[in-house]
Design a protein around this nucleic acid. Structure first.
Lengths: 215, 215, 215, 215
DNA sequence: CCCTAAGCGAGACGGTACGTCATGTCTTTGT
DNA sequence: ACAAAGACATGACGTACCGTCTCGCTTAGGG
């Protein structure tokens, strides 16, 4: 895999010389955390409740994770490894649409609340923010950047458009709804969003003649 | 004015029969809160510290505000009443650009951190979220919607574009940077953003006819 | 009272300008502590259990007492104000015997375990040691010194015997049993102890003639 | 020898079939414990710190000792085997004086603090108390009892005086100062103590006949 | 103009969760 | 096989802040 393995706080401890939590511990904690996130949400997720539910000592949890946000982050990533979202076929611009639809579903479902909670915490905790960006966001961005590059090559996006700006335009509204307005995320709205944003980014249609494929 | 006066928890108590905090109380609390927000940020803003700093009793604070978020929100709004941002002249689309530039400056400055902190808390606190939307966001949205309506009338925006979607596209990226990626907000980036978004929303420049499919 | 009131950590807060725990708090805590000391002993007395039992918040306990030993000390003193032991009539040497008998009973009963526990803690905590000496020991010592002075005047103790040494000899063995050997304290043993110690301290019996009463 | 060998938890393992700690283990642990007792005192002596300092695994320590008190006790006894204090010559009563002087020196020095710490813990820990009595106190008591028996034979102590009581009177004040009053132990004070106590215990100097009652 | 209800400061209070620490047991790993 | 290294469950610690409450003092406004 070309995406570097950004180490979790409590990753599998197969590496020699690096001790880590027993597998039982990690699994119990993850399971309990996921269950509690479903039941009470991130806001009322407490380390004590995770300890009690999982049968793992509180001290042990704090040994391997920094705080509840850290645990929740691991649970979130375990729930749905974001890199796995991508399926690579057809024109890049279609992959882009598909990716955004999947993101919409993910953020619109129960995991969205977890993401929101983590990002809420990240506002107060720079480490949390960093972890979120590195472990959750970066893989997605790298994928999206790749797709945008391909779409540009394929002639669906003008060459003079900044890709990071496009990412902001495509992704930002999703998080805006999730974090700020609280309006539901719908596949239809995302569809419209992508259409409009890409319309603003596509090459000028005039003088097209038959669109010459890049190669 | 057509924008309803969304009542603060601790508005001026000039109305007869409706008691409110004495002016001294309100001012002391606001001042202390603003200072503390600058000094320690929202995360470490405690009601006790506000009480101590302002010389106002904690009970009194809780009498007039619901919680620290409520206080902070008042302080934020007092700092910069968002409705006042708008200056009405020239074509609507220019006002729109201007409004977004001002928003960028506001969110990019120290108050942006306060907004981020409040929104961070809002993820855990539905009351906070509701307050933010009602008191901070709604006035802005109503203004923006008005400008978009005018711009549509003036022929700068296609009639079939959903205005709420446009708001998401124009505003979302700002909050996305503020809350998620942490990248700085710059006037230049916002400029590009507006250009691209509005390009996607503007009427077709000429009678294109059906876009010729590549093959 | 001529014995200065060495202030407890949570004394009655009648003094103006000095805030203290509400009476209900103090009483609840004292009651719960005394009960728990009887039930589980000092070693297993925890602040949490006091809080739960008394219905007083843990934070409140820590606000007024430094630690469990501090609470237990207050409970101990409330249980039996040592200064009250003394009853003043008859020859001083008889009062001395009586005082030591009462001390034996006190230290031999359940409160003895509390004293032992507090002194155990005092070995690790200088503040605790100081508190014990000031609040528990000193009043007793002052009383005993007074009795010894009177007994000397009354001719029952030689003038050249150091009173502090005598206190050590009379009191030391009680604590020795309590803290070190663990042998039970019995009135009979104390009786013998006092007899032997005072025999070593009394004036040489020769040339006595009829013992002249002091008055 | 008539003093039974009260087995330490980690005695030399010369006996066949009875495994004990390897010599290296025992020595490392003892050394580390003694050093730590000097540096941080008994209160802050932790098993972990002994393990780290000595390079011996914590599990290994717990295999051979019951708890930190057990380890500390061994270290204390190794520092100064109390049975070795006695030197047998001259009249028994002189040996007694000498023994108490040595005890005073021992308890007055740095090891005294260790003893105090151990006894402090013993108040909360019955096992610790038992160990202290068996391994530290009993050998001394048996020696003292022997000396008292000899002194009685030699006519320096009355036959009707209980020897255990005398031990309490002679030893109690030392521990009383060490554990309770905190006053320093001095050779002079001990000298006086012994003088007075033995004066109370020595035979009546001449044929007094019945002590003439005052009236 | 006074008197009464309120607003108010001060801060005590019950509660919840925090993150830390040390205990004594158990597991893994290496030798 | 034994021991180092250290993970683990347990349980108490002392702290922080919440939002409520109680206590008297101050103060304004209606009789």
């Amino acid at each position: 895999m070309n995406i570097p393995n950004v180490a979790s706080s409590a990753d599998a401890n197969t590496a020699i010389g690096r001790r880590g939590p027993r597998e039982r511990v990690r699994q119990s904690v993850m399971e309990a955390t996921k269950a509690l996130l479903q039941e009470v949400g991130f806001a009322r997720l407490t380390v004590d409740s995770i300890a009690e539910r999982s049968g793992v000592g509180k001290g042990t949890i704090y040994r391997w994770w920094n705080n509840r946000a850290d645990v929740a982050m691991d649970a979130l990533l375990e729930e749905r490894d974001p890199v796995g979202w991508f399926v690579d076929d057809g024109p890049a611009i279609e992959s882009l649409r598909r990716q955004l639809r999947i993101a919409t579903e993910f953020l619109g479902g129960p995991n969205g609340a977890v993401v929101a909670g983590l990002l809420g915490d990240a506002q107060h905790d720079p480490q949390m923010a960093h972890a979120f960006r590195q472990r959750f966001l970066r893989p997605l961005f790298e994928l999206t950047r790749r797709l945008l590059a391909e779409a540009t090559e394929e002639g669906d996006i003008r060459a003079d458009v900044d890709h990071d700006l496009l990412i902001d335009m495509l992704t930002g509204p999703l998080y805006f709804r999730l974090l700020v307005t609280g309006e539901p995320l719908s596949a239809a709205a995302t569809q419209q969003l992508v259409d409009t944003a890409l319309r603003g980014a596509r090459p000028e249609p005039r003088n097209l003649g038959p669109r010459t494929p890049t190669q």
